[in-house]
């Protein structure tokens, strides 16, 4: 999952729209940050201007 985020303020990305791709996954791995990311809350907190590369577990 690749996220290109141009917001200059922190942004909460709701995940329900991506259900067909996420297929109920609750865990991901932030490849460039080198850390696990939980998808359980149904949203991702994006840092301003941050691009994110997630491997969906």
């Amino acid at each position: 999952m690749v996220i290109v985020n141009k917001n200059e303020q922190p942004y909460s990305l709701k995940l329900d729209r991506f259900a067909e791709a996420l297929q109920g996954a609750t865990q991901a791995y932030d490849v460039l940050g080198g850390k696990p990311v939980s998808l359980q809350s149904g949203a991702l907190a994006l840092q301003p201007g941050q691009g994110l590369l997630l491997e969906i577990k």
Binding site: M1, V2, I3, V4, N7, Y11, L13, F18, L46
Partner: peptide
């Protein structure tokens, strides 16, 4: 909202 999301799978 300024966010582009895509998947490779």
């Amino acid at each position: 909202d300024g966010v582009y999301v895509f998947f490779r799978y």
